[in-house]
């Protein structure tokens, strides 16, 4: 019997997120190791990136700390129990509030402005394409992660819609983690003068 693809078949809730999560995290770890080794082996050295202000650094660190809390509470719970509940959920929600406001600050301070390094007057960590790409990915996935949840908090979506958005939120959250790791990696490379 011929099976026609329906909207229901395209639903993200049909994917086994737990498996995707495990393979994504393993893949990410492998890529970071391989990438680090490859970059280190290339022996390419440039002038290390100029330091940002202490305030920018603090906001960036706080943002990354919330990402760690959010990822730890959500993915940790999913890997351990299949779903999030209890103290993990409380910590996730508390962290999510901070994440939303820190995201705005990080967007203002770290969004690639497209200026050439010489025009900007300093050695930008955005000079490497990988750094710029990961920054864009981080911002967009963060907006998606926060947006899906904020939208779900409004009396708009019904239960199937909420379940769909919860699934989207998980995938967006995974994208945040992947892009955050990529961005930190890129920042460290720039900072150490490897790129």
């Amino acid at each position: 019997m011929q099976h026609f693809v329906t909207i229901g078949d395209l639903s993200v809730t049909q994917f086994d997120f737990r498996s995707i999560l495990i393979y994504s995290l393993i893949g990410l770890a492998v890529l970071v190791v391989i990438g680090g080794v490859a970059i280190n082996a290339s022996k390419k050295t440039v002038t290390p990136a100029k330091s940002r202000s202490w305030f920018s650094k603090l906001l960036y660190l706080a943002f990354m700390a919330t990402v760690i809390v959010l990822a730890g509470t959500s993915f940790g719970s999913i890997l351990q129990a299949g779903h999030m509940s209890g103290y993990a959920l409380i910590a996730h929600l508390a962290g999510a509030g901070a994440f939303t406001f820190l995201l705005l600050a990080v967007a203002v301070l770290f969004v690639p402005n497209g200026a050439l390094p010489e025009e900007a007057g300093f050695t930008s960590d955005g000079r490497w394409w990988f750094s710029r790409a990961s920054a864009w990915l981080l911002l967009i996935s963060s907006i998606a992660a926060a947006g899906t949840m904020f939208f779900s908090m409004l009396p708009i979506l019904d239960t199937p819609g909420l379940l769909e958005f919860a699934a989207l939120h998980r995938f967006a959250g995974l994208a945040v983690v992947v892009s955050a790791v990529m961005h930190v990696f890129a920042m460290l490379c720039a900072k150490s003068g490897l790129r």
Partner: peptide
Amino acid sequence: KVAGLIALALTCLVVVSA
């Protein structure tokens, strides 16, 4: 919810502007 939505909207604005 209101503050969060405003922050999210501003973030979107920053990103779109950039």
